[in-house]
Design a protein around this nucleic acid. Structure first.
Length: 815
RNA sequence: GCCGGGGUGGCGGAAUGGCAGACGCAACGGACUUAAAAUCCGUUGGGGAUCACUCCCCGUGAGGGUUCGACUCCCUCCCUCGGCACCA
């Protein structure tokens, strides 16, 4: 028996698919559509196993829905802007554009080898000026609506390289290139006002099926909390200080307030305070503490008395104002009231600096003497030391105290979000230039739409040092003001690449894009994406920004839907030797090598079989061998079936019909329900095992056998497309198997005349009996009593209870 | 610390209130072969009884509960992998 020649078949079918344009998306308004999308790849050197898994899952879904009568859009493109291109430029002296397009070439070739059913006509790269001009266009539309603005914000700064660093470029508090200590520097940067949409983004009602954890992560990220703003007066400054708290019930227990070192009032304090020198040296020390993830957690809480007091509005008590490094300017009002008795952080801070503690909520299990308090009591209880509120429950006091403050104009109930506005400024080269011109006379002026795109210059050397690289291009930097015609300079920041990926799915959905970002009609037809597939690492940012974009564009009437991705599948990682495949771990398996040795269908089959899509997948070379064996078994079986000879004994047998119909039903359900391709493939294996027996025993006529086999080829086609096309052709078909429709279940073959019922005694299986379908409970019982295996357990006992689940189980409770 | 996923044979995994371990891998035995590879057939959770057909006990991270019946539902705990983290 000859082995399946995968190289020949794969080349042949990939070519045929390309020539026939079978996967080309067609805008057909009256047909039901299905948009399958995998997160587009970043243009690093080549694709890895994680990509193969992602795209294979998408491909099975696309092919399955196509065979089920849907009009399919299944596009691909490249996330082509970003830092690694600049790193390559620094290290290898290759211009970012050259590096990127070289990689696009490699990845494109690799993707084509995977034989995915992509509509290549809609391929895009975000670094193409015809793409990024629309980033600029959207920026300007948002600018008009005041959804983008400029403000001062902190950035990581390397004083030696004289450059801004991304968070991931800060390693152990130092610069990744030169290890100098990283400082925080205030820069004027562009922000998108995503906080305006916080409430809309919390509404997930337009989403059909997303992993629960992704929704939870987004909700936590947005971080809505109900609370109260309280105004404390500062007599020395003749000013009010507003704090935000979620626990107004503890207001009587506030023994000091703390403000962020970057709070605007700090300047005024410095002007007035007798402790000016001490505060300045404290600020100098704290200011350079960088705020990357690792360091924030370890950072010691520190503070200093500001030398002035604040007056608590509920009891007119004077309490000290402190400046503390643990208070964030960006959250709430940048100032807090500290209640050490009922907040663990405040408790620790108070202990460290010997600040007073006052208990205002009674812990039912603990004493109410401050000196004896071991830790803050953060739960509910009865109010004490709180004036007229004493005796009330603390939960009702949250509302009562807020309302009382509101009435006196000393505070108000508010809602707070931890979501911050989206900083889109990057002081880098390889990104979309921000279309703003600075004129001494006219200020910040938008580039007129007719002048878009603002093209990224290529006469730039990337060094990784100095400020924004675009400042080095005179041709780029200097321009005329569009308003007054005078000398002006361009904005030299580029946009965050999340801007690119926030709408690429709309561009894909649009065939006609000469003079607009996308065609409204076509986008309204294809969108939302019916199935989006990608890694969990994009659970928050990419998915949140895309949702935001769609909501804004909906409000601006560019489109008429509210969510970009109705269904989301987050596939698990590819693991080898207990760790995620990665270059640094040295455990990568190159997909191309596997394809060379076994063919892409084998690789697909293994990946789909080894685990359900959402779980991590353990790479196993022996598993690949198993997949390869299965494909060859199928290949051999195909020729056995073609060479099968009829005998006269097999005419009435329906076992092959039963088998194929059971398989059709099982596989269809496994795909439909949760994309559990692993169990679908198990059912294919069960089918071949069963069919093998039928062939050996010559239990079926040839006609029925061939008929079942052809249906089986269709069932396998989404999984191993090349192999199935080849077999489909050998069986005399001229058209692609993907023009066929998915086999339908013939219910009449699934009604079993006999079924086996397990008989339990006190919940333990003691025997099995075969019954005629539809037997009554009494008949089953009678049958069971006749069975010696069961009878012996009943001797000398009485049956006190009988549970019968039709056709499945009979449980007898005996004493 | 908070939130979430997960824990089932030697391994990947099935079964989500009704016969635990489908399907595959690995291992072992057999057939074919001069031999090997490939292929095909068989066995395979642990323990025990039996010449044998077979039969019994234990078993889904640990302990408890609900139920005629629990991998599945509830409570307590342990381990593990992710995410977030001074959010006031």
């Amino acid at each position: 028996m000859e082995k399946y020649n995968f190289t020949e078949a794969e080349d042949k079918w990939q070519k045929k698919w390309e020539e026939s344009g079978i996967y080309k998306a067609q805008f057909l308004k009256d047909r039901k559509k299905f948009y399958v999308l995998e997160m587009f790849p970043y243009t690093s050197a080549q694709i890895h196993m994680g990509h193969v898994r992602n795209y294979t899952i998408g491909d099975v879904i696309a092919r399955f829905f196509a065979m089920n009568g849907f009009n399919i859009l299944h596009p691909i493109g490249y996330d082509a802007f970003g830092m690694p291109a600049e790193n390559a430029a620094i290290k290898q002296k290759i211009p970012p554009k050259e590096w990127t397009y070289k990689n696009i070439g490699t990845i494109g070739r690799q993707l084509k080898k995977l034989g995915i059913s992509y509509c290549w006509e809609r391929e895009l790269a975000t670094c193409d000026p015809e793409y990024y001009r629309w980033n600029q266009y959207f920026f300007l539309q948002f600018y008009k609506k005041k959804l983008v603005y400029k403000k001062l914000s902190l950035a990581n700064w390397c004083p030696s390289c004289n450059t801004v660093l991304a968070n991931e470029q800060v390693v152990d508090g130092g610069c990744w290139r030169c290890s100098s200590a990283v400082e925080q520097k205030e820069l004027s940067q562009w922000f998108v006002r995503i906080t305006d949409y916080a409430e809309k983004l919390l509404d997930f009602s337009g989403i059909k099926n997303w992993p629960e954890r992704v929704i939870t992560m987004q909700k936590n990220w947005i971080g809505k909390s109900y609370g109260c703003e309280v105004h404390f007066s500062m007599p020395e400054l003749k000013k009010e200080l507003t704090v935000f708290t979620t626990r107004p019930d503890t207001l009587f227990g506030a023994t000091y307030v703390v403000i962020s070192p970057r709070h605007p009032v700090v300047k005024e304090i410095l002007a007035k305070s007798r402790l000016k020198k001490d505060i300045e040296s404290f600020l100098a020390r704290v200011r350079n503490q960088n705020i990357t993830v690792e360091t924030t957690a370890k950072m010691e809480k520190e503070g200093i008395y500001a030398g002035i007091d604040a007056v608590n509005p509920v009891n007119s008590e004077k309490i000290p104002v402190w400046i503390g490094n643990y208070v964030l300017l960006e959250y709430g009002t940048g100032a807090i009231m500290a209640v050490p008795a009922h907040d663990q952080r405040d408790f620790e801070f108070a202990e460290k600096y010997g600040l007073p503690v006052r208990i205002v909520i009674k812990d039912p299990e603990w004493e109410t003497v401050p000196e004896k308090l071991q830790q803050a009591y953060e739960s509910e209880g009865a109010m004490i030391n709180s004036g007229t509120f004493d005796g009330m429950g603390s939960a009702e006091c949250i509302v009562a105290i807020s309302k009382s403050l509101e009435k006196q104009g000393k505070g108000k109930q508010t809602v707070n979000y931890s979501l911050r506005d989206w900083c889109i400024s990057r002081q880098r080269y390889w990104g979309t230039p921000i279309p703003i011109i600075y004129c001494k006379k006219c200020g910040a002026v938008s580039v007129p739409e007719k002048d878009l795109p603002v093209i990224l210059p290529e006469d730039i050397e990337i060094t990784g040092k100095g400020e924004s690289p675009l400042k080095n291009s005179n041709r780029f930097l200097h321009c005329k003001c569009p308003e007054c015609g005078g000398d002006a300079e361009r904005e030299t920041d580029t946009m965050d690449t999340f801007m690119d990926s926030s709408w690429y799915f709309l561009r894909y959905a649009s065939g006609d894009t000469k003079d607009k970002p996308f065609s409204k009609d076509e986008v309204n037809y294809w969108m939302p994406v019916d199935q989006y597939i990608g890694g969990i690492e994009h659970a928050i940012l990419h998915l949140l920004y895309s949702r935001f974009f769609v909501k804004v564009l909906n409000d601006m009437n560019y489109l008429n839907f509210n969510e970009p991705f109705e269904n989301l599948l987050c596939q698990g990682m590819v693991i080898k030797d207990g760790a995620k495949m990665s270059k640094s771990k040295g455990n990568v398996v190159d997909p191309e090598k596997v394809i060379q040795k076994y063919g892409v269908d084998t690789l697909r089959l293994f990946i789909l079989f080894a685990a359900p899509p959402e779980m991590d997948l353990e790479w196993a070379e022996t598993g690949i061998e198993g997949a390869w064996r299965f494909i060859n078994r199928v290949w051999a079986m195909d020729s056995n079936i073609r060479n099968y000879t009829d005998t006269d004994k097999n005419n009435g047998d329906v076992s092959v019909e039963k088998l194929i119909n059971r398989t059709i039903r099982g596989i269809t359900e496994d795909i439909r329900k949760e994309f559990h391709f692993n169990t679908a493939i198990a059912k294919m294996m069960e089918f071949t095992n069963g069919l093998h027996r039928i062939i050996e025993e010559q239990a079926s006529s040839k006609e029925k056998l061939v008929d079942a086999w052809k249906k089986f080829i269709k069932l396998m086609a989404p999984f191993i497309p090349h192999t199935c096309e080849e077999m489909w052709e050998i069986h005399g078909n001229r058209q692609s198997v993907f023009n066929e429709s998915w086999p339908a279940v013939e219910e009449k073959y699934l009604k079993d005349e006999e079924s086996s019922v397990a008989v339990q005694i006190n919940g333990k299986v003691r025997g099995r009996i075969n019954i005629v379908s539809g037997s009554s409970e009494a008949m089953v019982m009678e049958n069971a009593m006749k069975n010696p295996d069961i009878f012996k357990w009943l001797e000398g006992k009485t049956v006190v209870k009988r549970i019968y689940v039709a056709g499945k189980i009979l449980n007898l409770v005996v004493k």
